[in-house]
Amino acid sequence: MANEYLEKMYKEFLEKFEESNLEQLIEAFNREVGNRGWAGVRGAYLMAMKDAFLKYKDLDSSSIIAKDGKGISLARKVRLEGNTLIAEGENFGGAARAI
Rank of each mutant, 00 (worst) to 15 (best):
9 M>T: 08
10 Y>R: 12
11 K>L: 15
11 K>N: 15
12 E>G: 06
12 E>R: 14
13 F>W: 09
13 F>M: 04
13 F>L: 04
15 E>D: 14
15 E>G: 11
16 K>C: 12
17 F>D: 10
17 F>I: 10
18 E>K: 15
18 E>D: 15
19 E>R: 14
20 S>P: 05
20 S>K: 13
20 S>T: 07
20 S>C: 13
21 N>M: 11
22 L>K: 00
22 L>F: 12
23 E>V: 12
24 Q>T: 13
24 Q>S: 12
24 Q>M: 10
25 L>D: 05
25 L>V: 15
27 E>T: 10
27 E>L: 07
28 A>Q: 13
28 A>Y: 09
30 N>K: 06
30 N>Q: 13
30 N>C: 11
31 R>K: 14
32 E>W: 04
32 E>R: 09
35 N>G: 06
36 R>S: 09
36 R>N: 09
38 W>E: 10
41 V>W: 08
41 V>M: 05
42 R>C: 01
42 R>S: 00
45 Y>V: 01
45 Y>I: 01
45 Y>M: 14
45 Y>Q: 03
45 Y>D: 02
45 Y>P: 03
45 Y>W: 13
46 L>N: 02
46 L>H: 03
47 M>G: 01
47 M>H: 01
48 A>V: 11
49 M>Y: 04
50 K>P: 00
51 D>C: 08
51 D>W: 03
53 F>P: 13
53 F>Y: 09
53 F>C: 06
54 L>G: 00
54 L>M: 15
54 L>P: 03
55 K>N: 15
56 Y>K: 07
58 D>S: 14
58 D>F: 05
58 D>E: 15
59 L>Y: 07
59 L>F: 11
60 D>R: 08
61 S>D: 14
62 S>G: 11
63 S>G: 10
63 S>E: 14
64 I>M: 08
66 A>V: 02
67 K>F: 08
68 D>M: 04
68 D>H: 02
69 G>Y: 06
69 G>D: 09
70 K>T: 12
70 K>P: 04
70 K>Y: 10
71 G>K: 05
71 G>M: 05
71 G>H: 04
72 I>F: 04
72 I>R: 00
75 A>W: 02
75 A>K: 06
76 R>C: 12
77 K>C: 11
77 K>A: 10
79 R>D: 07
79 R>Y: 08
81 E>L: 09
83 N>M: 04
84 T>G: 00
85 L>I: 00
85 L>R: 00
86 I>K: 10
87 A>V: 03
87 A>M: 05
87 A>F: 08
89 G>Q: 03
89 G>E: 00
90 E>L: 07
92 F>K: 12
92 F>S: 03
92 F>P: 00
92 F>T: 02
93 G>L: 10
93 G>W: 06
94 G>T: 07
94 G>W: 00
96 A>V: 03
96 A>E: 00
96 A>G: 00
97 R>I: 03
99 I>L: 04
99 I>N: 02
